[in-house]
């Protein structure tokens, strides 16, 4: 085995992720001891505890890991592609557009007959945002126009989501605006995971093969071109990969922001600033951060009804402000 320069970092992050995953399994609305859970996990017949473990806790913990990894990875890829440290699926409107797609698929009743319409519509929403963004923001990766374009896309998608939910004849739909804007892993099931799995696999694969191209792109478009990197192909992989994976997770968790912003920044110095080396650590660290946030939500208790996105925003928004201030200093 060749020695990877980031092997220690990846191993440490993975160990933290596993520890957080196991911790997440132990926490829930019901007070169950570790012994009870272990016994139920390996029980041959179904008991109430084994159903709680396999049908409620495992899907939630898995979804946390998958969602966090997707957001971390896509954040790292988008920051490399747009050559902008503030790019992130939440901030540039990809997540809220994915939400809009999912909302249309669910509340029109389409998903009842075609379950795969859910991730497909979310992918479509996310892809539209990802294609529109560079067109609106213009090339050269200017920070200000990128953020403005992202805010505009987010606002439109959020407004249309609210509109769609308010127009639904179901009286509960309007209350669910909160879920789509702030996100939650509450009471999701294995079925959700099965439906999004193919989209996640394809999305991750596309995102992971952008590494080399992103490295070349960091030296400038022309240099990348002379190095034999096909920019249209690189853009295609990054945008479709983001749309597929972020679309899929958003379709079942709602919009969860800031994970994709924070994680690549925390790791960039550790991997020497190379976009390719940032990808895998960002995915694992994203999984850690999101699982940690969900554990905190669970510790608040089921009666609090706290949404996951509230927590990530409380941590993420100040970080975002700090980044803006840092960027401004660099400009002056």
């Amino acid at each position: 085995m060749t020695k990877h320069p980031d092997a220690p970092l990846i191993v440490i992050l993975s160990l933290i992720a596993i520890a957080l995953f196991l911790t997440s399994l132990m926490i829930g609305a019901a007070d169950l001891s570790i012994a009870q859970l272990i016994e139920a996990a390996f029980a041959s017949e179904k008991t109430p505890v084994s159903i709680v473990f396999w049908e409620i806790r495992v899907p939630r913990a898995l979804l946390g890991v998958i969602t966090g990894a997707t957001l971390g990875l896509s954040g790292a890829v988008l920051q490399g592609l747009l050559r902008n440290p503030l790019a992130e699926p939440g901030l540039i409107g990809v997540s809220s557009s994915a939400s809009l797609g999912a909302v249309i698929a669910i509340y029109t009743g389409l998903t009842i007959t075609m379950p795969y319409a859910l991730p497909a519509f979310a992918l479509l929403g996310a892809a539209i945002a990802a294609v529109l963004l560079p067109m609106l923001a213009g090339g050269r990766g200017q920070t200000l126009t990128l953020i403005l374009a992202g805010v505009a896309i987010s606002s439109i998608a959020t407004a249309l989501t609210s509109l769609a939910l308010n127009l639904s004849p179901n009286p509960f739909a309007a209350m669910e605006i909160v879920f789509w804007m702030l996100g939650s892993l509450n009471d999701r099931s294995m079925q959700h995971l099965y439906i999004i799995a193919p989209f996640i696999v394809v999305g991750w694969a596309l995102l992971l093969i952008t590494g080399k191209g992103l490295n070349a792109l960091s030296l400038g478009e022309e240099t990348a071109h002379t190095m034999g990197v096909s920019l249209p192909r690189l853009r295609f992989c990054a945008i479709v990969g983001t749309a597929a994976s972020v679309g899929a997770v958003t379709a079942v968790t709602g919009t969860i922001g800031f994970i994709g912003l924070i994680v690549p920044h925390l790791l960039r110095k550790m991997v020497g600033g190379e976009p390719q080396r940032l990808l895998i650590p960002s995915a694992i660290a994203g999984a850690c951060l999101l699982t940690l946030a969900d554990i905190t939500v669970k510790l608040f208790g089921p009666q609090s009804n706290l949404k996951l996105g509230v927590l990530t925003a409380i941590v993420g928004a100040p970080f975002f402000l700090w980044l803006i201030i840092k960027q401004r200093r660099a400009l002056i």
Binding site: P48, S168, P169, N170
Partner: peptide, 29 residues
């Protein structure tokens, strides 16, 4: 409010449901 986990642990044999107000779906159901 009754969290799903607590309901499952009580091992109900029968679930009493109410009228669904609309044939249009919502996450609530």
């Amino acid at each position: 409010k009754l969290p799903l986990e607590l309901l499952i642990l009580e091992d109900p044999q029968l679930l009493v449901e109410g009228t669904q107000f609309s044939d249009k779906p919502a996450l609530a159901f």
